[in-house]
Structure formats: C-alpha cells, structure tokens
C-alpha cells in the first residue's frame, strides 16, 4: 500500500512538474543559450554511442534473421525485417534506454546535487522557478533531439543489417536487394510511429529524471540513490509506455 502511494505520488509530482514547465514555454526564446547547451548534451554527445549500438543491433538482427530464415527460403525478406524492427521498435526503445542511462542519470545527479547544496532553494528565493530554468530547456531539447537520434539510429541500424547481409556467407544478399525489400515493405507511417514513440519516451525520461533530482533530500549518498532510482524508474517507464503506445499506434 505504501509503495502504491509512493508510485502515485511520484506520478502526480512528475505531472505537476510537466505542467509547471509547460506554463513557462513562452520564456524559451529568452533561454536560447540553455536550450542549445542541452541540445548539445542530449543530442551531440549521445550520438556516437547511439550510432555504435544501432549499427550492431541492426547487424545482429540481420544475422539472427538470416540464421532463422535460411530453412524457410525467406532470406530475401531480411531487409524488411531489419527495417521494420529498427524503425518501429528497436530504434526508439534503444535511444530511450541510452537517454536514461547516459543523459537521464547526469540530469538527476546535477539537479540532486543542486538541491542538496541549496542551489534550488536559492533559485526559489530569487523568484526564479526551477521548472523554468532547469526543466524547460531540458524538455525542449529532448523534444527536438530525441527524434533526430531515433532517425540516425534507424539509418545506421539499416546499414548495419545491410553490411552483415552482404558479407555473411550463409546470407549473401546484395545491398540493392536488401534496400529494395526494405523500401517495398516499409511505409512512411512505420517511421513516424517510431518517432512518436521516441518522443514520448524521451520526454518521459527527462521528466522523471528532473523530478527525482529536484526531490532529493540528504547528502551524497542520497544523490547516488536518486540517480539509481531515476535510471530504474526510467527503464520501467520506457517498457510500460512502449506496450501502451504500440497498442495505440498499431
């Protein structure tokens, strides 16, 4: 019962934080510098790891698909399988998981440290709402950068699959054939659905991590505990949201 109350409280305070940050949306043009800094942190610095992981996810997907399909003579469909899997599911989920582990943990650590050092209290005494200065630029940056990361993850994943499909002896499908099948069976809506999912996951992760950071009390040990909690809650949220959003979009 206590845990349920705690979950509902967390959900309520996260929603409140979102609405408060949203109410300051008009101040975003004045916070250009903070927005660009957050775009750099969320987008540019996450890009290499997204590229590496999506390449290998695409590659291993092609490998597994090739291995499983060789008995059915369905190898020519590897392109569409990798394409759809990356665009609809693995691209957005992987980007969100990386965002939680790499950016979300850093957000929680920074805000929790500010809270513990009374910097957040100092902001409030200056009548500078933390939701405006600390949350809004991060949310806006996630809104812009997460779909970009998801598109890059899709493209790199497709290429990873194409390379494996060509150079694996028991598959040996030329890239032209691979991409031709990929194009034939994929619709623009598949990519869009993936981007919508990525957007929802990205905003959820940033909000959860901001809220947990801003509600930290205590000292260094509590900061560590908050970071762990933020990552765990984010991962659970991504997978739970994934089911419900997929159900709506299908």
């Amino acid at each position: 019962m206590k845990q349920l109350t705690s979950i509902l409280e967390g959900f309520g305070s996260t929603l409140q934080l979102f609405l408060r940050a949203l109410s300051y949306a008009g101040t975003l043009p004045r916070q250009r510098a903070r927005f660009i800094e957050q775009c750099y942190l969320i987008g540019y610095t996450t890009l290499p790891i997204v590229a590496i992981l999506s390449f290998f996810i695409g590659a291993v997907l092609a490998l597994q698909a090739g291995y499983s399909m060789q008995n059915f003579g369905a190898m020519q469909f590897i392109g569409s399988l990798v394409g759809l899997s990356m665009a609809r599911e693995l691209g957005p989920v992987m980007v969100a998981i990386l965002l939680a582990g790499r950016v979300g943990s850093a957000i929680t650590a920074e805000l929790a440290s500010m809270k513990v050092n009374q910097e957040v209290d100092a902001l409030e005494t200056m009548n500078i709402p933390p939701a405006r200065m600390l949350v809004l630029p991060r949310l806006a940056a996630a809104l812009v950068m997460v779909p970009v990361l998801a598109i890059i993850a899709d493209l790199v994943g497709w290429f990873g699959g194409a390379i494996v499909a060509k150079y694996t002896s028991f598959i040996s499908i030329e890239p032209e054939a691979y991409f031709s099948v990929l194009r034939r069976y994929m619709k623009f809506q598949d990519v869009m659905n993936g981007l919508i999912k990525a957007e929802i996951f990205g905003l959820g992760v940033v909000l959860v991590c901001c809220n947990i950071g801003l509600n930290t009390r205590g000292g260094p040990r509590e900061i560590g505990a908050s970071v762990t909690r933020a990552v765990v809650v984010s991962l659970i949220l991504i997978l739970v949201l994934d089911y419900f959003v997929t159900k709506v979009l299908i």
């Binding site: 009374q118 209290d121 009548n127």
Partner: peptide, 18 residues
C-alpha cells in the same frame, strides 16, 4: 509575495551556483 517583495537570503553554505 516573492514577486512583489524582494527578499534576499544568504544561506549557511552560500548556496552559490557551482
């Protein structure tokens, strides 16, 4: 109140933005 009255606070730790 915080919008109309300017209240400055010097925290024990300083609470400077690091």
């Amino acid at each position: 109140t915080r919008e109309h009255e300017r209240i400055g606070m010097v925290f024990q730790s300083g609470a400077l933005f690091n």
